[in-house]
Amino acid sequence: MTIVPTGSAAPPAAPSGRGVGPLLRAWRERRRVSQLELALRADSSARHISFVETGRSRPSEEMVLRLAERLDVPVRERNALLLAAGYAPRYPETPLDDPSMAALREGVERLIQGYEPYPALVMNATYDVMAANRGIVMLLDGVPESLLVPPLNAMRLTLHPEGLAPRIRNLRAWRGHLLEQMQRQVALCRSEPLRALYEEVAGYPLPPGTPDEEPGGEPGGEASAYFALPMRIEHEGRVLSFISSVSTFNTPMDVTVAELAIETFLPADPATVKYLHSLVS
């Protein structure tokens, strides 16, 4: 499955009636960093940080970016901080289908194809699937066409009662993991589209007959010990186990690139490895 560009989010707007000071203070408190600690990180003084946060001092563009970097503020939100301080956004938001993104598209597609036969996909900040390999297509076999209309959304596909949810053996644990992950992102990014998605998927009913917890072990065997929470999913009469890993780009200079995430699914047991390789042998 090749990369499918989706509509770009609107450029960040400076919050009405709020300067950059309260926004920086909110990020500092969110990171649980004192004014003194932030000042040391940014080669400034606690007094200057205090003046910036209260609006008594207008920070330079360089200072806004330095504080944002020390507070690990997402790239999109750094643009919002600059706007609130009266400066132009620093980071562009280039559509994935732009010619300048050709190398990125080719590299990402080659990466997830090279991961086959194991599943891998690329998502944006709201979990829309931008690209997926044949391992993911295999897992989606049997999902209703109504859920496969672009743009595909990884959270909807996973948690919808007509999607993958009925086949996930440890659905309660996996669902809880995904919802907690989304809650952290909503709190961090203040994204209304992400909040709306969270409220939607959190409201999905569990498929009928979902057990309170996954039965321990397979018939005649013992429960496997995992080093991380697996997703255990049925496929053609077998239970496949995967450990999820998410990668992002280091030091991105574009909002679109900063919000891309590559999720790969590592087989969590020898039986899953053997089965996936049998599909391509």
Rank of each mutant, 00 (worst) to 15 (best):
E236K: 13
A9V: 03
E77C: 11
V33K: 00
P12S: 11
S224A: 11
R167F: 10
V280M: 09
R18P: 04
M155T: 03
R32Y: 05
P193N: 02
R70G: 03
Y204H: 08
S34M: 07
L24N: 08
L260T: 00
S191W: 07
R41A: 15
L65R: 06
A68D: 13
R47Y: 14
V273K: 10
A125M: 01
H235A: 08
P161S: 07
L82T: 10
A13C: 12
N170H: 06
G203H: 07
V255F: 00
V255C: 03
H48Y: 15
T272H: 08
D128C: 08
V75M: 10
R70F: 08
S278W: 06
A268T: 03
E192A: 04
S45N: 07
L96F: 01
L164N: 00
L83G: 02
F227T: 11
G7S: 07
Y118A: 15
P270M: 12
V143L: 15
Y115P: 02
A132P: 00
T54F: 06
N133M: 11
P230Y: 04
A9R: 14
H177Q: 13
R30W: 12
A42T: 10
N170G: 01
S45W: 12
L121R: 11
S245C: 02
L139E: 09
T264F: 01
P144T: 12
A125E: 15
F51Q: 08
V75T: 14
L71V: 10
A173Q: 10
R47E: 10
L104I: 01
R184H: 09
P205M: 10
P252K: 09
H160N: 09
S281D: 15
A68E: 13
P22N: 05
P207S: 09
I243T: 02
V257L: 01
L147S: 15
L23E: 03
C189P: 00
H177W: 05
H235M: 09
T251N: 09
Y204D: 01
E199T: 04
A39N: 02
P99C: 11
Q185A: 08
L194T: 05
T256D: 01
